[in-house]
């Protein structure tokens, strides 16, 4: 066998094959690396400009009478986006507080509350909204587009966005009191 080996022509692996193997390897590593990076990124960070998006709204929970809200139209106002779901127990802890905060700011017209219902069924969502007497704009997160935009890690999560459309604060998990919510909004209103 060894003799035959030596007799065989000393051909190295063709260059194109080497390039192909390494290119495939690097492609795979790049793919996995990018995905890993994405998974570890966490949510959108304070200081990030939120890109425009639009969201349909449940009837009865429209924003200024429109059944769809466009984020770009909210410039000039402080926006609070709350991700929730009717199957989410912790969401219930903060539902009443959010509504209370909304009622406090609604007359000023300077703050928008937006509820994004994450992978939920509408009948159950409506039962939930009714149960907690929620009146601010609410709609389904169709195709999880909005939650992917914010890279949410779960529900509930609440995002506070200033008048220029820049994210300023992220609350992961439920709020424990109305004052916590007000503290965030007031500091943004003061600007």
């Amino acid at each position: 066998m060894t003799e035959m080996n030596e007799a065989a022509p000393r051909r190295a692996v063709p260059l194109w094959a080497q390039i192909f193997v390494f290119a495939a390897l690097i492609g795979l590593l790049a793919l996995v690396g990018v995905t890993l990076n994405k998974r570890q990124q966490g949510t959108v960070q304070p200081g990030d400009q939120i890109p425009d998006f639009s969201m349909p709204l449940f009837s009865g929970y429209e924003y200024e009478g429109k059944s769809e809200v466009r984020f770009a139209d909210l410039r000039g106002k402080v926006t609070v986006i709350n991700f929730w779901a009717s199957w989410c127990k912790p969401c219930e802890q903060e539902a009443a507080e959010l509504q209370e905060a909304w009622e406090y700011y609604e007359p000023t017209g300077a703050v928008v509350f937006l509820g994004a219902d994450y992978v939920d069924t509408e009948p159950e969502a409506r039962v939930y909204l009714k149960k907690f007497g929620i009146t601010f704009a609410n709609g389904p997160d169709m195709g999880t587009r909005v939650s992917q935009l914010f890279r949410i890690k779960g529900v509930p999560e609440t995002y506070f966005i200033d008048k220029r459309g820049v994210l300023r604060y992220v609350q992961v998990g439920p709020f424990l009191s109305v004052t916590d919510i007000q503290k965030q909004i007031d500091s943004l209103l003061a600007e």
Binding site: P56, S59, S67, E122, P123, R126, G139, P140
Partner: peptide, 8 residues
């Protein structure tokens, strides 16, 4: 959305 409302 309308459809769901109807269903609901």
């Amino acid at each position: 959305t309308k459809y769901v409302i109807l269903l609901f």
